[in-house]
Nucleic acid binder design. Structure first.
Lengths: 231, 231
DNA sequence: GCTTAGGATCCTGTATACCGTATCCCTGAT
DNA sequence: ATCAGGGATACGGTATACAGGATCCTAAGC
């Protein structure tokens, strides 16, 4: 507190500046999510550095960041490998996601402003349009954006910080399963619960949504497992 | 494993496999928790590197790790500063902690093995003895260990990974408030709920404990605020 | 006297070069 | 076919260099 460093109005001069390590991290994360680097891929520092036209340092730091986000695992002296999400990993992901989204939803119900609610509604609309147009990619993006926005409504920065990497892995997982599911009605009902201002109702809907989502992913994984018994 | 004796020039580097960056991170984290680096302290790479007898690189990576754990905040091109936990930060910490410990407790109730329960019971005993002996430091440590163990009982690695840094900050906060509270009865009741195998009861106790703890810290902070209105 | 402009200085961000060593892979001998 | 040996590879860490933003001290200007 009493941190009066920033002038009122906060005119950040170059707020757009991002250290190279962060840009490298974002780039690598995107490549992992987009399956350019599928699970099992080794991330070799010198290779990536050369490919990206940077030195090893930013790449190293980016890899460490991705490690803490759970996208890669590094074995001492062997380097980083893109992780494969096991069935247990997926269950744990949904466990934690559920607990935190319930909290987020509960807080969102009591804290969201009208302007924020309008914004979320517009994202919901985008999803509906994508669904009607049969644009699976846009639908998937709208779904991701929806979850991100709900999180913001909670006005809980720590919650956002903790859940964000998990959402990243979740989105990654959903893309791996090739599932841009039709969750529009679900999302809509959930959102209305938040907009109603009832924390309990919002929490209940969040839990229901998380569990439905979990079931969908479980089924998709079981199906995939069935098709390709041994990898 | 056939590890040759290291050159006796520098200090003992050859302790274990842990990369240097991790040991530096642990050391710096400890110093922050122990108030060697109080909130507001700038962490200057070259300074720390020289002080620890390592190069800048491990220090940089350690600082990044501490940033993701929420102990420091780094402003681009200005470096890292030990954060001061605001009242809101504390509330958010407890919000997320409560949600996750409830989950951990619930899962622990159904998953903990007898051997694990025995181990936790022994930690509880340690706490009781420390309390009886009036050893506040030992009591604080036992309390921290208790929370860590409950977390392990959940058998949920992601949950542990997510909650661990938060526990770190919580412990830090408790030390800042100078509070080795007498939570023995509370912990004991909570533990028995887990040992009983009832997930609902365990969840309820976890929630109750988290809320009590939050109140205690709130009061301590309010008191401190009162004593020193402006820092 | 107070503010402002300049410049010196500190420190980060990034690059480059290099070393030791653990791991992997390939080859060759048994 | 198996196993040992010997590179090749790439990580972990050190050292050094340097550009440029941030900070601070000082001196000039109103």
């Amino acid at each position: 507190m009493s941190r009066q460093a920033d002038a009122p109005g906060s005119f950040d001069i170059d707020a757009d500046y991002k250290p190279l390590r962060d840009r490298v991290r974002d780039e690598l994360r995107q490549r992992i999510i987009d399956d350019v680097y599928p699970p099992g891929t080794r991330l070799i520092e010198t290779e990536l550095a050369a490919g990206l036209g940077v030195s090893r340092l930013p790449v190293r730091e980016a890899i460490r960041a991705l490690e803490s986000e759970g996208f890669v695992k590094t074995v001492p002296r062997r380097g980083a490998v893109v992780v494969e999400l096991s069935a247990q990993d997926v269950e744990e992901l949904f466990d934690v996601r559920e607990a935190l989204e319930v909290l987020a939803s509960r807080q969102a119900a009591t804290r969201a402003t009208k302007a924020e609610l309008r914004r979320v509604r517009s994202i919901l609309d985008r999803g509906r349009k994508a669904l009607e147009a049969g644009d699976r990619v846009a639908l998937g993006k709208a779904n991701e954006a929806f979850h991100d926005e709900i999180l913001k409504l909670s006005h809980n920065l720590l919650l956002q910080a903790v859940l964000e990497p998990l959402q990243g892995r979740l989105h990654w997982l959903l893309r791996q399963t090739g599932d841009p599911n039709d969750l529009f009605e679900e999302h809509s009902a959930w959102f209305e619960a938040i907009a109603s201002g009832s924390a309990d109702l919002a929490a209940e809907r969040a839990r229901g949504h998380a569990r439905l989502n979990r079931e969908i992913v479980r089924n998709l994984l079981a199906e995939r497992q069935h098709r390709a018994p041994s990898a």
